[in-house]
Simulated scan of single mutants.
Amino acid sequence: MPKAKSKAQQQAAGAALAAKRGEQKVSELQGASKDMYDSMSEEELDEMASTPREDLPENAD
C-alpha cells in the first residue's frame, strides 16, 4: 500500500478521500488531489491519508 512521502501528499490524499466518500465536492479538488481521486481506490487513499505526519517533510523532493 502507498505511504505518503510528504505532508502535502498526505493532505492531498485526505482531500481526495473526502471526495470519494462524498464529504467534499469532486469539483473542488485541484492538482494532485484530483489526480489521486481519479487514479486511486478509497482503500489506497485511506492508507496514504493515515500516514503518521511526525517525520514527514513539508514537500517531497
Rank of each mutant, 00 (worst) to 15 (best):
M1F: 11
P2H: 10
P2F: 14
A4L: 12
A4I: 11
A4R: 11
K5Y: 13
S6F: 15
K7M: 02
K7Q: 10
K7F: 11
K7S: 06
A8T: 11
A8C: 06
A8Q: 09
A8H: 04
Q9I: 09
Q9G: 04
Q10F: 02
Q10W: 09
Q11P: 10
Q11C: 11
Q11Y: 11
Q11F: 13
A12D: 04
A13V: 02
A13K: 03
A13C: 13
A13H: 04
G14L: 02
A15K: 08
A16H: 00
A16T: 01
A16R: 01
L17K: 08
A18I: 03
A18M: 07
A18F: 01
A19F: 00
A19M: 03
A19I: 01
K20Y: 10
K20N: 09
K20F: 08
K20Q: 11
K20S: 09
G22T: 01
G22A: 09
E23I: 02
E23D: 09
Q24T: 13
K25D: 04
S27T: 05
S27V: 03
S27Q: 09
S27Y: 00
E28W: 05
E28M: 12
L29A: 07
L29M: 02
L29K: 08
L29P: 03
Q30F: 12
Q30R: 11
G31C: 10
G31R: 15
G31I: 07
G31F: 06
A32P: 06
S33A: 07
S33Y: 00
S33F: 02
K34S: 09
K34I: 05
K34R: 15
K34N: 09
K34F: 07
K34Q: 09
M36A: 06
M36G: 05
M36W: 14
Y37N: 01
Y37H: 02
D38H: 13
D38N: 15
D38F: 12
S39G: 15
S39N: 15
S39E: 15
M40N: 05
M40H: 03
S41F: 14
S41G: 14
S41C: 12
S41A: 12
E42D: 06
E42F: 11
E42W: 09
E42V: 11
E44A: 06
E44D: 04
D46F: 13
E47Y: 12
E47G: 13
M48T: 03
M48K: 02
A49P: 08
A49W: 08
A49S: 15
S50H: 10
S50N: 15
T51Q: 06
T51G: 04
P52L: 03
P52N: 05
E54M: 06
E54A: 14
E54D: 14
E54Q: 12
E54G: 15
D55L: 01
L56A: 05
L56Q: 07
L56K: 04
P57D: 00
E58K: 02
N59I: 04
N59Q: 06
A60L: 02
A60Q: 01
A60V: 07
D61A: 13
D61Y: 11
D61K: 14
D61I: 08
